[in-house]
Design a protein around this nucleic acid. Structure first.
Length: 630
DNA sequence: CTAGGGTTAG
């Protein structure tokens, strides 16, 4: 590449002052690698075409995107910079911005800044986009402190630009609101800023405000909007966004397609994800990875693996994320041999070193199949230090299979790494209870109380007519709270008449039977389902997104609700989808405990200590009711 | 016609 450039330099002198065809040359260059771009540029010069303002941005973009910041790449960048100067383009905002991004992205902040200052001097201020370029370039090289400094400099220089999003979203919003005019890029940067920090509802709200302001969205904007919908499980809004794009003639490029596949998958609408997938003629590795993951978490592991083979046939190279999808598919489909096989093939066939996340997937595959010893051996042989997720995964499997020996070890390791992990305490005390080690049970409970360990509160979201409603356990803040609780009473009566028995043994605290039941009844997903029963048509699928894993009692209750009221309910929890229909669930109850409940009564254990395998919901129950401690 | 804003996991 460097040689090509030096050849280009040699050609410079012979260039006639002919213009006009440069744009064609530069557009033919974009979309290819740096090598192709430079080769195209050289061809252009050789053909006697003089580069213009349109030439350098795409050329530099290709060079900046080239992997690594090796000496060769640096030399090429420097040479192109020389060309920019030579052709008198250094104060052109487009060319200068491209140079700035290239230098900053490679970590050469001084060079980037020099380009900016030169352009400012030459033009008496310079275009604000150059500041965007500077900050964006710093961010690309991960030097966020430097980008913050640049931001301060920008403000001092009196420039107002769109890159403000990178400072802090709230600060950015303040600046955004004060911008004299906002173009599509500014709106998109703001919306995506919210998406990046996980404030998806703010992202959608800003998009709605964008509509009110009659600003035009483009495909970039829509990717961020659809991504927000995906995270929120907001299918109605996501669907609306797709129709909106059609109506406005926003082109559906591969980014939009990928975002849509992900959105439909994360909303439990895998059929529509597949529709989008089939309609896409340009598929990249993201497309395949998205559909593989979508199929995997929606309980269609075999099809996910078929897709992986199709991906190879389509000559797309899987990356480390693809393998997370493939391994997740194996977990959810219970395919142990395949899982091991794929894991090994990563290094052997694709030269991808498994990360701790991949090991987590493998532990999950083995654990869910009950191969706990093998899972433990795998952890021992891992080339990196196991993190808390690894031990947590193993612990969860130990709960399912009632293996207290390995479970105890996993819990201890987990607590070493994450001393306030509520799940570990609950499962540990539960395992002690199961082996009648009541002294240890009391010790754990004491620790929980003393340390004031708290569980992340359970929270369920549901979209109704484009509005997202949020419920936490025992929530009374919803405007329809009164109706919801009264409807819940009716639903529970129906359920009991149909044979539902509340699983109160999961409540750990010393309270009356009545109180135990209440705790159980007020779990956030029950509130959300009840709300949906109250407010939606009977033919509408109820879709709920939960932040934690579903609890066993809610799982039972919703199974029965789907049968009794003839409603389809889809719950996306932390790890998978539950599609409830006609009284059964797509997860095939795979994650439920595969052990018998302990027979505490016959052992003469006081009922206040009666325990059984517990789940995520119990800690808040415990704290909420005080356990005689409050 | 170009620069600054976009997709997959945890």
């Amino acid at each position: 590449m460097v040689r090509a450039l030096s050849r280009a330099r040699g050609l410079l002198d012979g260039i006639p002052h002919r213009r006009g065809r440069a744009a064609t040359a530069s557009s033919s260059v974009s979309g290819h690698g740096a090598e192709d771009a430079v080769a195209g540029y050289v061809r252009m010069l050789a053909g006697g075409v003089r580069p213009d303002a349109y030439t350098f941005p795409s050329l530099l973009k290709a060079v900046a995107a080239a992997r690594g910041a090796g000496a060769a790449a640096a030399a090429v960048g420097g040479a192109i910079h020389a060309h920019v100067v030579k052709f008198g383009m250094e104060s052109n905002a487009h060319a200068a911005s491209s140079l700035i991004v290239m230098y900053a992205a490679r970590g050469d902040g001084a060079a980037a800044r020099a380009v900016l200052e030169a352009a400012r001097l030459a033009t008496g201020g310079g275009a604000p986009v150059m500041w965007n370029a500077l900050i964006s370039g710093h961010n690309r090289s991960g030097r966020f402190e430097v980008s913050c400094c640049s931001f301060v400099d920008m403000v001092r220089a009196g420039a107002m630009a769109t890159a403000v999003t990178y400072v802090s979203v709230d600060c950015a919003r303040d600046l955004f609101d004060h911008m004299p005019e906002r173009d599509t890029i500014a709106w998109t940067a703001m919306i995506d800023g919210y998406v990046q920090v996980g404030r998806f509802r703010d992202a959608l709200e800003t998009f709605r405000y964008m509509q009110i302001c009659k600003a035009r969205a483009d495909e970039f904007t829509m990717v961020s909007v659809v991504t927000a919908c995906a995270q929120l499980g907001a299918l109605e809004t996501g669907e609306w966004a797709r129709i909106y794009m059609g109506r406005l003639g926003i082109k559906m490029d591969v980014f939009v397609g990928n975002a849509l596949i992900d959105m439909y998958s994360k909303c439990g609408s895998i059929e529509r994800a597949l529709d989008v997938f089939k309609d896409m003629h340009n598929r990249d590795k993201f497309t395949w990875t998205a559909i593989i993951l979508g199929l995997a978490v929606n309980g269609r592991g075999e099809e996910a693996i078929d897709m992986f083979y199709r991906m190879l046939t389509a000559l797309q190279t899987p990356d480390e994320v693809t393998f997370i999808g493939v391994l997740t598919a194996c977990t959810h489909a219970g395919l142990v041999d395949k899982g091991r096989e794929f894991f090994l093939s990563m290094t052997e066939a694709y030269n991808i070193s498994p990360t701790v996340v991949h090991y987590g997937c493998l532990i999950d595959v083995l654990g869910r199949a009950g191969k706990l010893k093998e899972a433990l051996d795998t952890i021992d042989k891992m080339p990196m230090k196991p993190n808390s997720t690894i031990w947590g995964t193993l612990l969860a499997s130990c709960r399912v299979y009632g293996n207290s020996e390995i479970g105890e070890l996993a819990a201890e390791r987990l607590l070493e790494l994450d001393p306030d992990n509520s799940t570990a305490y609950i499962l540990l005390s539960n395992m002690y209870a199961k082996s009648n080690r009541w002294k240890d049970v009391r010790r754990i409970r004491q620790t929980i109380m003393e340390k004031g360990i708290k569980k992340e509160p359970g929270c369920s979201m549901i979209e109704m007519n484009g509005i997202i409603h949020e419920f936490v356990a025992a929530d009374r803040s919803h405007p329809m709270s009164k109706e919801i609780y009264s409807k819940l009473e009716n639903v529970l009566t129906d359920l009991r008449n149909a044979g539902y028995v509340p699983d109160v043994t999961e409540v750990l605290v010393e309270v009356t039977e009545e109180e135990k039941q209440k705790v159980l009844y007020w779990h956030s997903e029950k509130l959300a389902v009840t709300f949906a029963l109250l407010t939606s048509e009977s033919n509408v699928i109820i879709r709920i997104v939960k932040n934690l894993r579903m609890c066993l009692d809610c799982h039972n209750a919703i199974k029965l609700i789907s049968k009794l009221y003839g409603r389809e309910v889809i719950v996306r929890d932390r790890t998978r989808f539950h599609h409830f229909r006609h009284g059964s669930c797509s997860c095939k109850d795979y994650w439920e405990a595969k052990v018998q409940k302990p027979s505490n009564v016959s052992l003469g254990i006081p009922s206040s200590l009666a325990m059984s395998p517990v789940h995520h919901c119990t800690m808040s129950d415990m704290m909420q009711l005080g356990g005689g401690h409050s």
